[in-house]
């Protein structure tokens, strides 16, 4: 039982990290039907920047916040350079452009920080406390809390501000939104900024949890976050979050059942199963059937 609870907490922690990363994918996809392949590399870059700032002694909260801001800026830059010029081209074109942008960012990161795996400092202490005779680790709980707070803030901004509602319009129909006088060249970069900010936050928590940061984690993050986004229903903000949590828990228990070697395969199995059984995802919004 104790082991199950521990795995559940770990699963939720990793899952909330996936959720933070997935939200960025999901929102971008719903606007432009583009899988933002550069997203994983943007957040890796952000995590490395956080590492460098921590090494040179920037206070932890400042370093993490600045890294997230950099993620937002990088997301917007990628949109401006790689996506906007091909926004209305055939869907394959922005996808290739995305792959290219991802390569550029990953290679730049590799040139700066090198290909090896770096240890990441513990920004959240690894204490634990006892509750009902059960040893509860402190760090995963903080990770879950941070993720919940960030997603709640993002939700409030989307639901209750003028720009947030405009963003929802753009996500549902970019052309109609444009005709409402919504400045899409402000909103679309904003979406990339939100995705980059939350994504880097997720990435920093991820590397803290696993105590390692390396170039290739961008690709791994892409698989997992994409799987989470699909699980929840692509384009659905909350679906992406719940999808992330479910994936995290499934991974944690897959370690128990089939061994840790297969853990990273779980997200891929999910992708296949979703495509086969419920392509809209668990919470896919399909009220558009009638027209």
């Amino acid at each position: 039982m104790a082991y199950v609870i521990e795995q559940l907490i770990n699963g939720l922690a990793v899952g909330s990290v996936y959720a933070l990363i997935a939200v960025g994918y999901s929102m971008v996809y719903s606007i432009l039907y583009l899988i933002n392949f550069a997203h994983g590399d943007v957040i890796t870059f952000g995590a490395f920047t956080a590492l460098t700032m921590l090494v040179i002694g920037v206070p932890i909260p400042v370093a993490l916040f600045l890294a997230c801001v950099l993620g937002a800026a990088l997301g917007m830059t990628v949109e401006r350079i790689a996506y906007r010029p091909v926004r209305y081209a055939n869907r394959i074109v922005p996808m290739i452009s995305a792959l290219g942008a991802g390569l550029v960012i990953a290679s730049t990161a590799q040139a700066i920080w090198g290909p090896e795996v770096h240890a990441f400092p513990q920004v959240i202490p690894r204490w634990s406390f006892e509750l009902f005779g059960q040893l509860i680790p402190f760090q995963p709980l903080i990770i879950i809390a941070i993720a919940v707070v960030l997603v709640t803030i993002a939700t409030i901004l989307l639901d209750y501000t003028r720009l947030g509602r405009a963003t929802k319009c753009v996500c549902q129909d970019i052309h109609a939104a444009q005709l409402m006088g919504i400045p899409i060249n402000t909103i679309v970069p904003l979406v990339y900024a939100i995705g980059g900010f939350l994504g880097v936050a997720g990435a920093v928590l991820y590397v803290t949890y696993f105590n390692a940061v390396y170039i290739q984690m961008g690709l791994l993050a892409t698989f997992k976050a994409w799987s989470a986004a699909m699980l929840g229903g692509v384009g659905n903000f909350h679906g992406a979050f719940v999808g992330g949590l479910l994936l995290g828990i499934a991974e944690a228990f897959s370690v128990v059942v089939v061994g840790s070697a297969f853990k990273d395969g779980v997200s891929l199995v999910f992708i296949v199963l979703i495509l086969l059984l419920k392509p809209d995802g668990l919470f896919g919004e399909r009220t558009t059937a009638r027209s």
Partner: peptide
């Protein structure tokens, strides 16, 4: 739109997952 030229597109293009009243609100962006 700010100058007063508004285009109601062919095929309606309402925001499908938004309520009727929020669609109207969006028109006044």
């Amino acid at each position: 739109v700010k100058r007063g030229i508004v285009h109601v597109p062919a095929g309606r293009r309402v925001f499908p997952n938004m309520s009727v009243e929020h669609n109207l609100e969006a028109g006044a962006f």
